[in-house]
Amino acid sequence: MTPTYVAGFRAFLDLNRCVRKGERAIRILAPCPVKERDDAGEETGERKVFFRSVPVFDVSMTDPLPGKDPVVLEPPSEPITGDSHHHLLAPLVELAGELGYTIEFRDLDEHGPRGWCDAKHKQIVIAAGPANCQVRTLTHEIAHALGIGYADYGREQAEVLVDCVTYVVCSSAGLDIDGESIPYVAGWGEDGALEAVRRYADTVDTVARRIEDALIADSQAEPVEQTKSVA
């Protein structure tokens, strides 16, 4: 089963839905932001994101509460809209260049992938569309370029790890991708893939910090010019 809309037991009650008796929870690692403090206990302004295991259920495991109309659920995988974070594209493109990758913005099938990282040819392709969606996808693909590939981690584990990186980076930049990342990670979390986050927490943190450092260092870069071709 591929989850489409996941939430906790009580959260579904608030949506006028109830988890059916006998359904088994999906275990996911939920982000838990923590403010860092110095030795004196004062907040440093820095924030770290940890992950803890929580039980969730997919909407397909629920039924409407008797006598109540279920709250209409927005699809969690809708593309991120808006261009509020367009300024982050330039430093991301520059970081990819430092890693030896070229970036191509291309018209892609709306029902297909929004981008990919071709490690063999050192190319990252990103779908044309809203800048915020491109930032999210480009961050994801750069995480692959930084070494989280299928050959070393396996497809399922690699996808879980890179989207955890993506969540950390985008959240720190003020871009809300909860609706995409949590179902995405849950969808790839079969066969123990989520255990990869526990085993490779340091890898997630290191890669996320590498991307965050690039965004901070180049936050004043000129807007990126997108060279686009039609797929």
Rank of each mutant, 00 (worst) to 15 (best):
A128K: 09
K48V: 01
V56Y: 01
D176N: 14
A217W: 09
F51M: 04
R20S: 10
T2V: 15
F12M: 04
G67S: 11
G8P: 07
P3S: 11
E46P: 05
R27H: 12
L194K: 00
Y150R: 15
V59P: 03
D191L: 10
T2E: 12
R10C: 06
F9T: 07
G189Q: 02
G174A: 11
G115C: 06
I182V: 08
G67V: 09
E195T: 08
R52E: 09
T206W: 14
Y184R: 02
G179D: 08
P91N: 05
V49C: 03
A145P: 03
E180M: 09
A221Y: 03
G179M: 07
E94I: 11
T4Y: 12
E42V: 09
E78I: 15
E94S: 11
F9S: 07
E23F: 15
Y5C: 04
V71M: 13
G41C: 09
E141Q: 13
Q123Y: 08
E36H: 13
P70H: 09
V160P: 00
I103K: 00
H144R: 05
S84K: 09
H140T: 02
D152N: 12
R136A: 05
V72M: 12
L89T: 02
E141P: 05
R198A: 06
R210E: 09
E36M: 14
A25P: 07
K228M: 11
L138G: 00
T44L: 06
L65E: 07
G100R: 11
D109H: 14
A151R: 15
E42W: 14
A119D: 08
A40R: 13
R37Q: 12
E190P: 03
G149N: 10
D152F: 14
F57E: 01
E98V: 04
G22E: 10
G22L: 12
D152C: 11
G67Y: 13
D218L: 12
H86G: 04
R199H: 13
V125M: 02
F57L: 04
V71Y: 13
A201Q: 07
T203L: 10
V185K: 00
I177T: 04
R198G: 08
E180Y: 11
Y184S: 02
I26L: 14
I142S: 01
A214E: 02
A151K: 14
A214M: 06
H86I: 07
E110H: 13
D202H: 12
T139C: 07
G192S: 06
C18D: 07
L161M: 06
L175I: 10
W116P: 01
T102W: 08
A217D: 13
G174K: 15
L89R: 02
G45Y: 06
K68E: 14
N16P: 07
D202Q: 12
L29K: 03
D178L: 08
M61V: 04
A173E: 09
A128N: 11
M1E: 15
G41R: 07
H87T: 10
L65S: 04
W116D: 03
T206H: 14
I26C: 05
C32F: 15
C133I: 08
D191Q: 10
M61R: 02
D213H: 13
D118E: 10
V135P: 01
P183K: 01
L99H: 04
A11K: 15
A158V: 03
D218I: 05
A90G: 05
L92I: 07
H140F: 03
S60I: 11
D39V: 08
A193G: 03
R209I: 05
H87W: 10
M61P: 01
S229F: 15
F50D: 04
R20E: 12
P183F: 00
